[in-house]
Design a protein around this nucleic acid. Structure first.
Length: 112
DNA sequence: CTCTTGACTGAGG
DNA sequence: GCCTCAGCCAAGA
């Protein structure tokens, strides 16, 4: 099947599932990997339906490492707790040492 | 079909 | 480094 066979949303889910434990990435990184760097917002929009799809949406944050999507989780601090459970330091909805835990799909699914 | 909204990003001040 | 503006594309009303 061709990549075009998959919907944009499905592609986002597939990439999100590839995020290793204790790592995070940004919407833009995923969007760029999918060839839709201009559609970073669509990634977030797609994640809207990620709940209940085995997609670690808590590992996806904006380029600042800020947990912009935490409001979409059940609890108010659920997203932060999930990240901290994986060894990611989160303070005030923002990931600490972001560059260290950042995971770029284009630099791992391809190069690696 | 048109308008609004949005889990974003980059550029400019 | 922070704030504001504009561009981006898809889905829902």
């Amino acid at each position: 099947m061709k990549p075009e066979t998959l919907n944009f949303f499905d592609k986002v889910y597939e990439v999100a599932k590839q995020i290793p434990y204790g790592r995070v990435t940004s919407y833009g990184a995923i969007a760029k990997y999918l060839g839709a760097a201009k559609s970073a917002r669509m990634v977030g929009y797609a994640m809207n339906g990620s709940t209940g799809k085995d997609v670690p949406a808590h590992r996806v944050v904006n380029r600042k490492g800020l947990l912009t999507g935490k409001h979409h989780f059940d609890g108010t601090n659920l997203m932060q707790q999930l990240l901290e459970s994986e060894g990611v330091i989160v303070v005030d909805n923002q990931i600490q040492d972001f560059d260290n835990v950042f995971w770029d799909p284009a630099n791992n699914l391809l190069a690696k």
